[in-house]
């Protein structure tokens, strides 16, 4: 969809622009809101590796995100670990959680995996509620060391960290998409028996997808304690995260790395603007209705609509069979 050279240039430019931004833009609110949009790029991109490429729906994104949030909050509290260590540790926890959930449920049918991820949120929330070291229901206050002076403030700093994570996530997703891994995932999505017969070790591939996806989503949660200074079960395992993780790729388009990015920028920005004017309930209601509308009317998302307008059949959802 985009040449590797062009892609790399744009990625580097975006990264550099992000790091210069604190010198140019004074109002920290933009970084505060921008952080959330970038966070959703990471989450949606991570979700799409399993959900979009391999076709296995994770409803429990907030479980993975929350696991990342609490891993880094705990490391910050107990060991004053630096942010980089928090992010790596959170990603590893996400990988482990993804593999464990996948291993127990993926051998049977995709539906069970999805159901298990739904229930996983409840269980992790229960565990956190009951764990003294994680602050229980009241949560943990998480104040880390001051950020490097260059960034002019904590918010600007975590914004730039999240920007790096977002670029990394997109680079990983794009690499997967064009590599043997991505072909294997898409083969699984199209037909598991056919994939197996072509030598694709489907169970192992699905576990790999779970691991990468879980790791990326959990990493997205890692800077959150540094961003919000306080973590609690309600915000860490928030409903909106699970919903957006699913809605953003579906609205953007699940077949390509661009879809989740488009969905996250669009929906994330609208939500950031909207939270100022409307209540969060109506926000969720709107996203829920949008999700239903897209899944029914445009299951290939905006990218699918776009290519349909151009007359391409590339991303069409039509069954491949023609009347015999």
């Amino acid at each position: 969809m985009m040449r590797t050279g062009t892609f790399a240039t744009i990625a580097v430019l975006l990264g550099a622009a992000g790091f210069l931004l604190p010198q140019v833009v004074a109002n920290p609110y933009y970084f505060y809101a921008g952080y959330v949009v970038l966070q959703y790029i990471v989450i949606a991109t991570g979700w799409n590796i399993l959900g979009g490429y391999a076709g296995y729906i994770n409803f429990g994104t907030s479980a993975f995100f929350g696991a990342g949030v609490y891993t880094s909050a705990y490391l910050m509290q107990a060991f004053e670990a630096p942010l980089v260590v928090q992010i790596v540790a959170a990603a590893l926890v996400g990988v482990a959680l993804g593999v464990a959930t996948g291993y127990l449920t993926l051998r049977i049918q995709g539906v069970y995996f999805s159901i298990a991820t739904l229930a996983l949120v409840v269980v992790l929330e229960t565990v956190v509620h009951n764990t003294e070291a994680l602050g229980g229901a009241s949560g943990l206050t998480t104040i880390g060391p001051p950020p490097p002076a260059w960034f002019k403030g904590q918010t600007q700093y975590v914004f730039c960290v999240m920007l790096v994570l977002a670029l990394l996530a997109v680079v990983i997703a794009r690499w997967i998409e064009t590599s043997w891994l991505g072909r294997g995932f898409r083969a699984i999505r199209a037909s598991e028996p056919a994939a197996e017969s072509c030598g694709v070790p489907t169970l192992r591939m699905k576990l790999i997808a779970c691991a990468i996806s879980g790791g990326i989503i959990a990493a997205a949660g890692a800077p959150y304690p540094s961003y919000a200074y306080h973590v609690e079960p309600v915000s860490a395992f928030g409903l909106l995260i699970a919903l957006n993780a699913l809605a953003m790729p579906l609205i953007g388009g699940t077949r390509s790395w661009m879809g989740p990015v488009i969905g996250a920028v669009l929906l994330g920005t609208i939500q950031q603007v909207a939270t100022v004017t409307i209540s969060s309930e109506y926000n969720i209601l709107a996203v829920g209705l949008l999700l239903i509308a897209f899944v029914v009317a445009a299951p290939e998302g905006l990218l699918g609509l776009l290519s349909a307008v151009r007359g391409g059949v590339r991303w069409s959802a039509k069954p491949a069979r023609k009347p015999a």
Partner: peptide
């Protein structure tokens, strides 16, 4: 439409559950 794959129907039901919840909250 012959595309009843569980990915999409699950998503639909998830969306419906959410709309019911939020509808009750509102």
């Amino acid at each position: 439409r012959g595309r009843g794959n569980s990915l999409q129907s699950l998503t639909l039901f998830f969306g419906v559950a959410l709309v019911i919840e939020i509808g009750l909250v509102i």
